[in-house]
Design a protein around this nucleic acid. Sequence first.
DNA 1: CCCGTGTGATACCGAGCGGTATCGTTTGGG
DNA 2: CCCAAACGATACCGCTCGGTATCACACGGG
Lengths: 208, 208
Amino acid sequence: MTSSPPRPGRDSRVARLPPRERILDAAEELFLSEGVRAVGVQAIAERADTTKAALYRHFATKDALIEEWLRIVAAGYRTTFDRVEAEHPDDGRAQVLGVARFVAEGLPDIARRGCPFVNSFAGLPGPDHPARRLIETHKADQRRRLTAMCERAGAHVPDDASAEITFLLEGAQISAQNASVDRAGDRLMAAVEAVLDRATATRADTAP
Amino acid sequence: MTSSPPRPGRDSRVARLPPRERILDAAEELFLSEGVRAVGVQAIAERADTTKAALYRHFATKDALIEEWLRIVAAGYRTTFDRVEAEHPDDGRAQVLGVARFVAEGLPDIARRGCPFVNSFAGLPGPDHPARRLIETHKADQRRRLTAMCERAGAHVPDDASAEITFLLEGAQISAQNASVDRAGDRLMAAVEAVLDRATATRADTAP
DNA sequence: CCCGTGTGATACCGAGCGGTATCGTTTGGG
DNA sequence: CCCAAACGATACCGCTCGGTATCACACGGG
């Protein structure tokens, strides 16, 4: 539906970006709402206002498109880590809270459309799929950076603190998705603060 | 492959259960390892040592099979909650820790094959799919019971405590799946204990 | 003993999948 | 201004999907 007559500017929803960007945008929207396996290349092409042929001119295969999309999403997270670290240099606590706030603010979207990594991980075949490796590498990187932040924040055992915070961040996302926890954002922030408090407390506080 | 000649007892892997149970067993194995959308009914029937025709004699559609499988898994969790409550009547803390231990012990399996609910949620179409509702109901029930346990444990704000513990439980599962956190079981238990300690602490402890 | 039910095998259906080929037409840089 | 490259459209390929129909056979209860 929705043919595009002599309409030069934006015509439907993705404006007039180069086809490659339109395809990636359309893929993101569909992958998130329907699942990476449920949506076909034809549907992606149609939503991007182009055709399968054009799609395959830019991406060798559907899996390559999935991988490229995940790579972009992962890069976005990396950018957030960079920004937070730049905004609060040497203040590990503020950095961790900045990351937590970023996740908390993204929860409404995740509740509606799901987490890209978690949702993709499911529909991907075997543990050797390149997109799967990409997700694992990304999560491992995130954990490493979080550990460094915790150390900078003065955590006694940064490894433990970052693990606990990772649990909270991931858990908040899937709990938001299945709607089992209300006000997930507020609760997440409070929980992360509590973990930081305990992880950086003096010995007297930990042994009443 | 593997025809079953005059072999009365077990013959391959699922012994000689009624076809319905063999199908559910086979479906569970494949759904977990490959994803609910990636595996076809033919593959399920073959692994169950039967045929598509027999499968459709017991389940109206593939979605119905998925739903029934999830229902069974959810019932298993419910049983665990029952057991833990019966083992430690009136001891909320022990109940919560019992649930946490159950999840922690299941982490290795989840790391290998993924969480049934999380993995299925992805490949399911629209938010009105019955299996999706089933998952949401199950998670909401779990949260309710967890809140009751926290209240029994003397938590000052049981709602907050159960939310935080839910985050930890769910987060530990997906962190185990993508291998971003090592020794996830131990860390999960420690984190849950810490949350319980803080949630039930006297006022003097919370305000240093 | 015999008959009805559930079973296993097989073939089939329409639809949609991922991916390819072809062919005008648009378009923008040298 | 012109030509090559990229584009949009369309038809097509082989394959697999979820689901159905048919049929011979095993078997257990009346």
